[in-house]
């Protein structure tokens, strides 16, 4: 049987043996539970004397949980991943790893998988909170699975962005800055473009504003979740109707596109990271 990736093993052990990881996990869960409690209380206050919650209340609590989890993952994944390679440089262990028989792909995958696993641990720890929404009603298993997939795909993309910047910089703090700037750029600039472009180029996207917006927002996980919440009530889970240049066609649902786009860019970032770690070779004496 093949050994587990040694970089992954060391990262997980190193991370989980320090109290920092437990405090971080506790803090994130506390945040999620506090927000769900606030939403729960707000829903209760709006019932106007009705004796029980309804499906809509359960769905609101569920959505708030998903968005809070996404916020936490958006913060945790790049910050943890950004210290992966640059942290080795700071600890002066980078040369030693590079000189082993590990291939650059092993190092990058080990680092990526370690951060991704921590995010998975966090999302898994959310399961009891999610279960509460089942008791209230208004959420089905498919919807829950779909949101988990979107959150974890986002975590993978942000981890890969963090690892990529980590391979390019000498210090973890610089890598963290670049990674967060990249992600915030994607999250903040994209909605602005979506709103501005139809006004600047009205002819180009005259009859298909909504479709272009959806396509552009496919790499925006928060938009994906909100759009999907609406779409799931009016159409099927897997497909959606798109109007492009006046032609209405069926295509994959927005969350499917979001996941595919996340995986694609995750692969691109990982390939770039591997290339950064691959030693240059030449023909020899010149």
């Amino acid at each position: 049987m093949r050994d587990i990736n040694p970089v992954l093993l060391r990262e997980l052990r190193g991370r989980l043996r320090t109290p920092r990881s437990y405090w971080l996990l506790c803090g994130a869960l506390f945040l999620v539970s506090s927000i769900s409690l606030l939403i729960y209380s707000a829903e209760y206050a709006t019932m106007n004397g009705q004796p029980t919650f309804n499906g809509s209340s359960g769905h609101t609590v569920f959505l708030s949980l998903v968005i809070t989890a996404l916020v936490v993952v958006t913060a945790i994944a790049p910050i943890m991943a950004a210290g992966s390679i640059s942290g080795e440089r700071e600890r002066q262990t980078f040369d030693l790893i590079v000189l082993t028989q590990l291939r650059p792909i092993d190092i990058v995958l080990g680092k990526t998988a370690a951060t991704f696993a921590y995010c998975l641990l966090f999302v898994t720890a959310l399961t009891p909170f999610m279960a509460i929404t089942f008791l209230i009603g208004g959420v089905d298993v498919g919807e829950l699975a779909m949101m988990y997939i979107v959150i974890m795909s986002t975590a993978l993309l942000y981890t890969c962005i963090g690892v990529y910047w980590s391979t390019r910089t000498q210090t973890a703090i610089t890598a963290t800055g670049y990674a967060l700037a990249t992600i915030l750029g994607m999250l903040l600039v994209l909605p602005v473009l979506v709103l501005v472009l139809p006004e600047v180029l009205p002819g180009w996207i005259a009859d298909s504003t909504t479709t272009w917006r959806q396509l552009m927002l496919a790499i925006h996980p928060f938009a994906t979740i909100i759009f999907t919440q609406d779409a799931i009530r009016t159409s099927t889970v897997w497909t959606n109707q798109y109007t492009i240049f006046g032609v209405t066609v069926a295509g994959p649902a927005m969350w499917v596109m979001s996941v595919a786009v996340s995986w694609f860019w995750s692969c691109v970032c990982s390939i770039l990271s591997i290339r950064r770690l691959t030693p240059p070779t030449s023909k020899g004496a010149s």
Binding site: P6, L9, R10, R13, F94, L96, Q101
Partner: peptide, 22 residues
């Protein structure tokens, strides 16, 4: 310089590099 990993014993340190050496 001797780069260290936190929370690793001497045996684990060598074991890690032995694993890296396949």
């Amino acid at each position: 310089t001797f780069g260290v990993y936190e929370s690793m014993t001497a045996t684990e340190y060598l074991d890690f590099y032995a694993r890296c050496g396949t």
